[in-house]
Simulated assay, not measured.
Amino acid sequence: MIVCTFNARTLASDASIEDLMVQARMIKYDIIGLTETRRHESHHAVFDTGEELFLGTCDKRGVGGVGVLVNTNLAKSIDSFECLTTRIGRLHLNRCGSLPAVSIFIVYTPTSHYDEREIEKFYMELEKFYKEDHTFYKIIVGDFNAKIGPRRSAEELHIGTHGLEWNEQGERLSEFIMSTKTIHGNSQF
């Protein structure tokens, strides 16, 4: 399964959605987690090709919004998509053939310019939703606004071996990864 993430910067207009679809069809993907969609109304579309698009809403300030684009070959496996907050969404896929049931969380973390309490609240909510989800296979994708560098010690097995540098947001993400016993795959930009 090829799961990607894309910071859309806006999917508030039909033209921006059309552009997304044109660009998505040029790459090989099964699921694209979408962040910073900035929509004021939720949106669900099924395209002629069989692809499905789910978009949640942003907050009152026009910030955030998450969604997901599911390719035709997985569309029949969709159980549900829900926006848990304006920054956290969850796609449930039912078991289909050799594909097990999967929950995919799409997240858009506040930047370091936000108050520490708001960043902490985001991670507490994400951890709560993650731990409450009883699907065996769970994936978290999105824009964490963080830099995680290479593993610094043998104990940091949850961190991949590739990366350039760390920042404060990366430290916070690393704490989340350790508390949820998840693994950070190597990031590409």
Rank of each mutant, 00 (worst) to 15 (best):
Y29M: 08
Y29H: 04
T37G: 07
L55G: 01
M26I: 09
Q23T: 06
H43G: 14
V46G: 02
R61K: 05
L34T: 04
T35A: 14
G65P: 02
T49S: 13
E52D: 02
G33L: 09
H43E: 03
T57L: 04
L34D: 02
E41V: 07
G67H: 03
R38H: 14
L69S: 03
I31F: 13
V22C: 05
K60G: 14
D59A: 10
M21K: 13
T37V: 06
L53F: 13
L34A: 07
V68M: 14
L69M: 12
E51D: 14
G56P: 05
V68R: 01
E51I: 03
V63M: 10
G65Y: 11
T49L: 00
I31A: 08
F54S: 03
T49F: 13
G64Y: 12
R25D: 13
E41Q: 10
T37M: 09
V68G: 10
E18M: 00
Y29W: 11
H44D: 06
G33D: 07
V66E: 13
D48M: 02
I27R: 10
V63Q: 03
K60P: 10
D48T: 06
H43K: 15
L53D: 03
V66D: 11
V46C: 08
R38T: 06
R39S: 09
I31Q: 14
V22T: 11
G67M: 02
E18L: 07
A45Q: 12
A45T: 12
E36R: 01
G67E: 04
